[in-house]
Amino acid sequence: MFFGIYLIANFIVFRSWSPKLRPEASSCLISLAHGTPAVFLASYAVLADPSRGFASSNTQFQNLVLDYSIAYFLMDLVHYIVFFPSDVLFIGHHLATLFVFITCRYMVSHGAFAILFLLILAEVTSFCQNAWTLANARKADVVFAAKLYDFLSPPFYALYSVVRGLAGPYFLYEMGVFYVSGAADSVIPRWVWVSWIVVVLSAISVSILWISNLWIELYRKRTGKLEKKTR
C-alpha cells in the first residue's frame, strides 16, 4: 500500500516538481498516509485495551497497528537507502524504530500499550510537520509555499516542543520506572525493554536538539527582519 502511494506521489501528484524534490515530497505523502491514521488507530487500540499496562499482552488490534507502522517504516527506509544513503541519522532512526516495533509485535507480544502510546506522541505532529516540510521545499520558488512555511513554523514548533519536550519525556519516565521495578521481566526480557528505553530516549534527545535549532533559526530570522525595518 505504501509503495503504491509512493509511486502515485512520484509520478502523478508531484510529477511537475523538480526531480530532486520529488523523492522527498513522495516520502512526505506516505508519511501523511501513515501519521494521522496511526494516531487514530493507536488511540483506539490503547483505549480499547482493558488492561492498559506497560506489560500487558498485545491485543489483536494493537498488533495490526504495529504491522501498519512497520510497513510504513520499511517503505520509508527503502526510500532513504535508495535516494539518501548518506543520511545515516534518518536511516538509523528507522532501523531503531523498526527494531522496537518488531520485537514488541513478533518477539515478546507484550508492551504494545506503551509502544503505541509513544507512537501517538510521535505522530500527532505528523500532518503539520509534513505540510511544513512540503512548504519548505518549495518556498524559494512558490510565493504561497513561502507564506505557508512562515505561517506554520511557530505553531508547529510549539506543538512539537510540547509533545517531544514535555509529554514524551514524562511518559518515558513513567515507562522506565515501571520496567526498572522488574514488574515486566517475566514477559519482556530485560535487554528488550532496556533497548526500548535507549531508542526512545535517543529519539527524544535528537528531536529536542532539532526543534531547538529551528527555534534559534526562527528567532534569528525574525530579529533580522526587525533590524532591517528599523534602519
Rank of each mutant, 00 (worst) to 15 (best):
F2V: 06
F2R: 03
I8G: 08
F11C: 12
I12V: 15
S16K: 12
S18N: 13
L21P: 05
A25Q: 12
C28P: 10
C28Y: 08
A33T: 06
A33H: 07
H34Y: 12
G35Y: 05
V46S: 10
V46T: 11
A48E: 06
D49V: 12
R52E: 14
G53V: 07
N58D: 11
N58A: 10
F61M: 05
L64A: 14
V65N: 03
L74R: 12
I81H: 13
L89Y: 06
H93W: 00
H94R: 08
A96F: 14
L98A: 02
L98H: 05
F99V: 04
I102R: 03
C104N: 11
H110T: 07
L116R: 08
F117R: 09
C128Y: 15
Q129P: 06
N130G: 03
W132H: 15
A135D: 00
N136G: 07
N136I: 02
R138Q: 10
K139N: 00
L159Q: 06
V162M: 04
L166M: 06
Y170R: 11
M175K: 00
G176T: 14
G182K: 04
G182W: 03
G182R: 01
V187D: 01
W191Y: 09
W196K: 01
I197S: 02
V199D: 08
V200Q: 09
V200Y: 09
S205M: 03
S205Y: 03
N213P: 00
W215P: 02
E217Q: 13
E217L: 07
R231F: 13
